[in-house]
Write a protein that binds this DNA or RNA. Structure first.
Length: 321
DNA sequence: AAGCTCATCAACCGCAGCCGT
DNA sequence: GACGGCTGCGGTTGATGAGCT
Protein backbone atom coordinates (compact mmCIF):
# COMPACT_ATOMS: atom_id res chain seq x y z
CA UNK A 1 0.00 0.00 0.00
CA UNK A 2 1.37 3.35 -0.96
CA UNK A 3 1.22 6.58 0.91
CA UNK A 4 -2.12 8.19 1.18
CA UNK A 5 -2.29 11.74 -0.09
CA UNK A 6 -2.17 14.52 2.48
CA UNK A 7 -5.48 15.82 1.15
CA UNK A 8 -8.24 13.32 1.04
CA UNK A 9 -10.42 15.64 -1.01
CA UNK A 10 -10.43 14.68 -4.64
CA UNK A 11 -9.77 17.46 -7.08
CA UNK A 12 -7.21 19.39 -5.08
CA UNK A 13 -4.29 20.51 -7.14
CA UNK A 14 -0.78 19.26 -6.47
CA UNK A 15 2.66 19.97 -7.83
CA UNK A 16 4.19 23.26 -8.84
CA UNK A 17 2.41 26.47 -8.03
CA UNK A 18 1.42 28.83 -10.79
CA UNK A 19 1.92 32.59 -10.69
CA UNK A 20 -1.85 33.02 -10.37
CA UNK A 21 -2.00 30.76 -7.33
CA UNK A 22 0.92 32.60 -5.76
CA UNK A 23 -0.82 35.88 -6.32
CA UNK A 24 -4.05 34.64 -4.77
CA UNK A 25 -2.24 33.34 -1.72
CA UNK A 26 -0.23 36.52 -1.23
CA UNK A 27 -3.32 38.63 -1.64
CA UNK A 28 -5.26 36.63 0.92
CA UNK A 29 -2.51 36.60 3.53
CA UNK A 30 -1.81 40.31 3.09
CA UNK A 31 -5.46 40.97 3.84
CA UNK A 32 -6.18 38.35 6.49
CA UNK A 33 -2.82 37.40 7.89
CA UNK A 34 -1.21 33.98 8.35
CA UNK A 35 -2.80 31.05 10.14
CA UNK A 36 -5.95 28.96 9.86
CA UNK A 37 -4.30 27.05 7.08
CA UNK A 38 -7.01 24.46 6.99
CA UNK A 39 -9.68 26.93 5.96
CA UNK A 40 -7.41 29.27 4.03
CA UNK A 41 -7.59 27.54 0.61
CA UNK A 42 -11.37 27.79 0.48
CA UNK A 43 -11.40 31.40 1.58
CA UNK A 44 -8.61 32.32 -0.83
CA UNK A 45 -10.22 30.43 -3.69
CA UNK A 46 -7.35 28.00 -4.05
CA UNK A 47 -7.67 24.35 -5.02
CA UNK A 48 -4.87 23.39 -2.67
CA UNK A 49 -4.71 21.81 0.74
CA UNK A 50 -3.82 23.95 3.74
CA UNK A 51 -0.48 22.28 4.18
CA UNK A 52 0.50 23.08 0.66
CA UNK A 53 -0.49 26.73 1.12
CA UNK A 54 1.45 27.00 4.33
CA UNK A 55 4.54 25.47 2.79
CA UNK A 56 4.35 27.69 -0.26
CA UNK A 57 4.04 30.78 1.90
CA UNK A 58 6.75 29.88 4.37
CA UNK A 59 9.27 28.59 1.88
CA UNK A 60 8.74 30.88 -1.04
CA UNK A 61 6.30 33.76 -0.82
CA UNK A 62 7.01 35.28 2.59
CA UNK A 63 8.27 38.80 2.22
CA UNK A 64 11.24 38.52 4.56
CA UNK A 65 12.94 35.74 2.65
CA UNK A 66 16.44 36.26 1.40
CA UNK A 67 16.70 35.08 -2.15
CA UNK A 68 19.85 34.00 -3.90
CA UNK A 69 22.76 31.73 -3.14
CA UNK A 70 23.80 30.94 0.37
CA UNK A 71 26.90 32.91 1.20
CA UNK A 72 30.17 31.54 2.53
CA UNK A 73 29.41 33.08 5.90
CA UNK A 74 26.05 31.37 5.97
CA UNK A 75 27.72 28.12 4.98
CA UNK A 76 30.03 28.33 7.95
CA UNK A 77 27.11 29.18 10.17
CA UNK A 78 25.13 26.21 8.94
CA UNK A 79 28.05 23.87 9.54
CA UNK A 80 28.46 25.19 13.06
CA UNK A 81 24.77 25.08 13.86
CA UNK A 82 24.38 21.62 12.39
CA UNK A 83 27.16 20.46 14.63
CA UNK A 84 25.29 21.88 17.57
CA UNK A 85 21.70 21.02 16.69
CA UNK A 86 21.93 18.06 14.38
CA UNK A 87 19.14 17.87 11.81
CA UNK A 88 16.89 20.32 13.59
CA UNK A 89 16.51 22.45 10.51
CA UNK A 90 13.95 24.84 11.88
CA UNK A 91 16.26 25.61 14.79
CA UNK A 92 19.14 26.20 12.40
CA UNK A 93 16.96 28.34 10.15
CA UNK A 94 15.92 30.50 13.09
CA UNK A 95 19.54 31.63 13.35
CA UNK A 96 19.80 32.52 9.68
CA UNK A 97 17.51 35.45 8.91
CA UNK A 98 15.72 35.12 5.60
CA UNK A 99 16.50 31.44 5.15
CA UNK A 100 13.99 28.64 5.53
CA UNK A 101 14.44 25.24 7.09
CA UNK A 102 13.67 23.63 3.75
CA UNK A 103 16.29 25.69 1.99
CA UNK A 104 18.93 24.90 4.58
CA UNK A 105 18.01 21.23 4.62
CA UNK A 106 18.31 21.04 0.84
CA UNK A 107 21.56 22.95 0.92
CA UNK A 108 22.96 20.65 3.56
CA UNK A 109 21.87 17.47 1.85
CA UNK A 110 23.10 18.50 -1.55
CA UNK A 111 26.27 20.37 -0.72
CA UNK A 112 27.54 20.69 2.81
CA UNK A 113 27.16 17.05 3.83
CA UNK A 114 29.25 16.13 0.82
CA UNK A 115 31.84 18.70 1.78
CA UNK A 116 31.95 17.17 5.23
CA UNK A 117 32.43 13.78 3.65
CA UNK A 118 35.32 15.14 1.66
CA UNK A 119 36.80 16.48 4.86
CA UNK A 120 36.59 13.03 6.39
CA UNK A 121 38.53 11.53 3.53
CA UNK A 122 41.42 13.89 4.07
CA UNK A 123 44.24 11.92 5.72
CA UNK A 124 45.92 14.87 7.28
CA UNK A 125 43.01 15.90 9.46
CA UNK A 126 42.01 14.51 12.79
CA UNK A 127 38.52 13.86 14.00
CA UNK A 128 38.63 16.59 16.60
CA UNK A 129 40.00 19.44 14.56
CA UNK A 130 37.93 20.51 11.59
CA UNK A 131 39.41 23.01 9.23
CA UNK A 132 36.50 25.18 8.21
CA UNK A 133 38.30 26.17 5.04
CA UNK A 134 37.92 22.61 3.76
CA UNK A 135 34.19 22.88 4.25
CA UNK A 136 33.76 25.78 1.87
CA UNK A 137 31.23 24.97 -0.78
CA UNK A 138 32.75 24.75 -4.20
CA UNK A 139 31.20 27.11 -6.69
CA UNK A 140 31.77 24.51 -9.40
CA UNK A 141 28.71 22.57 -10.24
CA UNK A 142 28.30 18.79 -10.24
CA UNK A 143 30.41 15.72 -10.08
CA UNK A 144 32.59 16.90 -7.26
CA UNK A 145 33.29 14.14 -4.77
CA UNK A 146 29.84 12.76 -4.99
CA UNK A 147 28.59 10.26 -2.42
CA UNK A 148 25.83 7.84 -3.28
CA UNK A 149 22.45 8.39 -1.64
CA UNK A 150 22.81 5.22 0.40
CA UNK A 151 26.17 6.23 1.78
CA UNK A 152 24.97 9.73 2.51
CA UNK A 153 21.95 8.29 4.27
CA UNK A 154 24.03 5.99 6.42
CA UNK A 155 26.58 8.64 7.22
CA UNK A 156 23.85 11.07 8.23
CA UNK A 157 22.29 8.45 10.45
CA UNK A 158 25.55 7.87 12.23
CA UNK A 159 25.78 11.52 13.14
CA UNK A 160 22.14 12.11 13.93
CA UNK A 161 20.63 12.29 17.35
CA UNK A 162 17.78 9.88 17.74
CA UNK A 163 14.34 11.13 18.78
CA UNK A 164 14.83 9.78 22.29
CA UNK A 165 18.26 11.24 22.56
CA UNK A 166 17.86 14.82 21.57
CA UNK A 167 20.79 17.20 21.39
CA UNK A 168 21.20 19.52 24.34
CA UNK A 169 19.57 22.88 24.54
CA UNK A 170 22.19 25.53 24.20
CA UNK A 171 22.99 28.32 26.57
CA UNK A 172 25.49 31.05 26.03
CA UNK A 173 28.23 30.88 28.58
CA UNK A 174 31.30 33.08 28.53
CA UNK A 175 34.25 30.76 28.87
CA UNK A 176 35.72 32.34 31.96
CA UNK A 177 32.53 31.94 33.99
CA UNK A 178 31.15 28.93 35.75
CA UNK A 179 28.52 27.17 33.76
CA UNK A 180 25.87 27.10 36.50
CA UNK A 181 25.66 30.86 36.66
CA UNK A 182 24.44 31.08 33.11
CA UNK A 183 21.90 28.36 32.71
CA UNK A 184 18.68 29.57 31.23
CA UNK A 185 15.78 28.13 29.35
CA UNK A 186 16.85 29.75 26.15
CA UNK A 187 18.44 27.89 23.31
CA UNK A 188 21.12 29.81 21.55
CA UNK A 189 24.69 30.05 20.62
CA UNK A 190 27.45 32.67 20.50
CA UNK A 191 29.46 32.94 17.36
CA UNK A 192 31.91 35.29 15.77
CA UNK A 193 29.24 36.62 13.43
CA UNK A 194 27.94 40.06 14.26
CA UNK A 195 24.30 39.58 13.36
CA UNK A 196 24.13 36.53 15.62
CA UNK A 197 25.53 38.46 18.52
CA UNK A 198 23.10 41.27 17.99
CA UNK A 199 20.26 38.80 17.93
CA UNK A 200 21.35 37.21 21.20
CA UNK A 201 21.73 40.54 22.92
CA UNK A 202 18.39 41.67 21.57
CA UNK A 203 16.70 38.54 22.91
CA UNK A 204 18.28 39.11 26.34
CA UNK A 205 20.06 35.80 26.07
CA UNK A 206 23.28 37.54 26.95
CA UNK A 207 24.47 41.04 27.60
CA UNK A 208 26.90 42.74 25.30
CA UNK A 209 29.54 42.60 28.05
CA UNK A 210 29.31 38.84 28.13
CA UNK A 211 30.22 38.26 24.54
CA UNK A 212 33.17 36.04 23.91
CA UNK A 213 33.40 36.15 20.14
CA UNK A 214 35.25 32.92 19.45
CA UNK A 215 33.44 30.59 21.81
CA UNK A 216 30.38 28.45 21.73
CA UNK A 217 29.20 26.69 24.83
CA UNK A 218 26.60 23.97 24.76
CA UNK A 219 24.84 23.52 28.06
CA UNK A 220 22.76 20.53 28.91
CA UNK A 221 19.28 20.54 30.40
CA UNK A 222 17.91 18.11 32.96
CA UNK A 223 16.19 15.84 30.51
CA UNK A 224 19.17 15.23 28.35
CA UNK A 225 22.42 13.44 28.82
CA UNK A 226 25.14 12.97 26.30
CA UNK A 227 27.22 10.01 27.31
CA UNK A 228 30.59 9.47 25.82
CA UNK A 229 29.51 6.68 23.53
CA UNK A 230 26.65 8.65 22.11
CA UNK A 231 28.77 11.68 21.59
CA UNK A 232 31.69 9.86 20.12
CA UNK A 233 29.39 7.94 17.86
CA UNK A 234 28.62 11.26 16.30
CA UNK A 235 32.11 12.72 16.29
CA UNK A 236 34.83 10.14 16.28
CA UNK A 237 34.99 8.96 12.75
CA UNK A 238 38.48 7.83 11.93
CA UNK A 239 39.48 9.84 8.91
CA UNK A 240 42.41 7.52 8.26
CA UNK A 241 40.08 4.56 7.95
CA UNK A 242 37.74 6.39 5.62
CA UNK A 243 40.49 7.74 3.45
CA UNK A 244 41.94 4.28 2.92
CA UNK A 245 38.74 3.15 1.30
CA UNK A 246 38.45 3.29 -2.43
CA UNK A 247 34.79 3.12 -3.21
CA UNK A 248 31.31 3.53 -1.86
CA UNK A 249 30.82 -0.17 -1.19
CA UNK A 250 33.82 -0.31 1.10
CA UNK A 251 32.58 2.71 2.97
CA UNK A 252 29.12 1.22 3.25
CA UNK A 253 30.58 -1.96 4.67
CA UNK A 254 32.63 0.00 7.14
CA UNK A 255 29.60 1.96 8.26
CA UNK A 256 27.60 -1.26 8.62
CA UNK A 257 30.31 -2.61 10.92
CA UNK A 258 30.16 0.50 13.04
CA UNK A 259 26.40 0.16 13.27
CA UNK A 260 26.73 -3.48 14.34
CA UNK A 261 29.30 -2.51 16.94
CA UNK A 262 26.97 0.13 18.33
CA UNK A 263 24.12 -2.37 18.60
CA UNK A 264 26.41 -4.67 20.58
CA UNK A 265 27.39 -1.82 22.86
CA UNK A 266 23.77 -1.18 23.66
CA UNK A 267 23.50 -4.72 24.98
CA UNK A 268 26.17 -4.24 27.62
CA UNK A 269 25.85 -5.00 31.30
CA UNK A 270 24.23 -2.67 33.80
CA UNK A 271 27.60 -1.94 35.39
CA UNK A 272 29.05 -0.83 32.10
CA UNK A 273 26.11 1.41 31.47
CA UNK A 274 26.45 2.93 34.94
CA UNK A 275 30.05 3.66 34.12
CA UNK A 276 28.91 5.52 31.04
CA UNK A 277 26.40 7.39 33.15
CA UNK A 278 29.15 8.42 35.53
CA UNK A 279 31.06 9.83 32.62
CA UNK A 280 28.07 11.58 31.17
CA UNK A 281 28.79 15.00 29.87
CA UNK A 282 26.75 17.87 31.13
CA UNK A 283 28.59 20.48 29.24
CA UNK A 284 30.47 20.56 26.06
CA UNK A 285 32.50 23.46 24.89
CA UNK A 286 33.36 24.05 21.30
CA UNK A 287 35.92 26.56 20.25
CA UNK A 288 35.82 28.21 16.90
CA UNK A 289 39.07 29.96 16.41
CA UNK A 290 41.11 30.86 13.36
CA UNK A 291 39.12 28.54 11.12
CA UNK A 292 39.60 25.55 13.38
CA UNK A 293 37.12 23.67 15.49
CA UNK A 294 38.36 22.19 18.72
CA UNK A 295 36.34 20.22 21.18
CA UNK A 296 36.80 20.27 24.89
CA UNK A 297 34.97 18.15 27.42
CA UNK A 298 34.23 18.66 31.04
CA UNK A 299 32.59 16.52 33.67
CA UNK A 300 29.50 17.58 35.53
CA UNK A 301 29.95 20.19 38.19
CA UNK A 302 33.67 20.78 38.18
CA UNK A 303 36.41 22.02 35.96
CA UNK A 304 38.40 19.57 33.91
CA UNK A 305 41.94 19.04 35.16
CA UNK A 306 44.75 17.62 33.02
CA UNK A 307 44.37 14.17 34.51
CA UNK A 308 40.68 14.02 33.66
CA UNK A 309 41.39 15.43 30.26
CA UNK A 310 43.88 12.64 29.61
CA UNK A 311 41.44 10.08 30.93
CA UNK A 312 38.80 11.20 28.48
CA UNK A 313 41.25 11.21 25.61
CA UNK A 314 42.39 7.68 26.45
CA UNK A 315 38.76 6.55 26.69
CA UNK A 316 38.22 7.97 23.25
CA UNK A 317 41.32 6.29 21.87
CA UNK A 318 40.66 2.93 23.53
CA UNK A 319 37.20 2.80 22.11
CA UNK A 320 37.70 4.08 18.63
CA UNK A 321 41.29 3.82 17.52
C1' DA B 1 22.72 15.06 -31.14
C1' DA B 2 20.95 11.77 -28.03
C1' DG B 3 20.77 9.42 -23.99
C1' DC B 4 22.30 9.01 -19.42
C1' DT B 5 23.64 10.57 -14.82
C1' DC B 6 23.22 13.32 -11.13
C1' DA B 7 22.65 17.94 -8.45
C1' DT B 8 19.26 20.92 -7.08
C1' DC B 9 15.13 22.41 -5.09
C1' DA B 10 10.10 22.65 -4.62
C1' DA B 11 6.72 20.05 -2.81
C1' DC B 12 4.70 16.08 -0.47
C1' DC B 13 4.05 12.88 3.42
C1' DG B 14 3.82 11.03 8.05
C1' DC B 15 4.22 11.96 12.59
C1' DA B 16 4.60 14.28 16.97
C1' DG B 17 3.22 17.92 19.85
C1' DC B 18 0.06 21.38 21.19
C1' DC B 19 -4.38 22.97 22.31
C1' DG B 20 -9.26 23.09 22.88
C1' DT B 21 -13.23 20.38 24.16
C1' DG C 1 -7.32 11.88 31.08
C1' DA C 2 -9.07 10.94 26.32
C1' DC C 3 -9.93 12.48 21.98
C1' DG C 4 -9.68 15.01 17.71
C1' DG C 5 -8.14 18.84 14.88
C1' DC C 6 -4.44 21.80 13.57
C1' DT C 7 0.26 23.04 12.97
C1' DG C 8 5.10 22.53 12.37
C1' DC C 9 9.00 19.64 11.55
C1' DG C 10 12.03 16.46 9.34
C1' DG C 11 12.51 12.87 5.90
C1' DT C 12 11.69 11.82 1.31
C1' DT C 13 10.27 12.16 -3.48
C1' DG C 14 10.10 13.71 -8.07
C1' DA C 15 10.60 17.25 -11.75
C1' DT C 16 13.91 19.74 -13.99
C1' DG C 17 17.93 20.86 -16.24
C1' DA C 18 23.04 20.92 -16.54
C1' DG C 19 26.99 18.22 -17.44
C1' DC C 20 29.01 14.08 -19.21
C1' DT C 21 29.74 10.15 -22.45
Amino acid sequence: MGRSPCCEKVGLKRGRWTAEEDEALIKYIQTNGEGSWKSLPNKAGLLRCGKSCRLRWINYLRGDLKRGNITDEEDEMIVMLHKAFGNRWSMIASHLPGRTDNEIKNHWNSRLSRQTYRFLTNKNKTATSIDISTLQVSQKKRRVGRVSRNVAKKYNQSTRFSKNNKPPSLTVVPVDKHVDENVGDCSNVVTNHDHMKESLVHDNVITSDELEPNWLVFEDDDSFNINIDDFLQGEAIDSNVVSSMNDDDEIEQWLAEIEEENIKKNERSVDEKLEDERLSLNSLEVCYNESKWDMEFSFTGFEMCDEEDNMLVSLWEDTYY
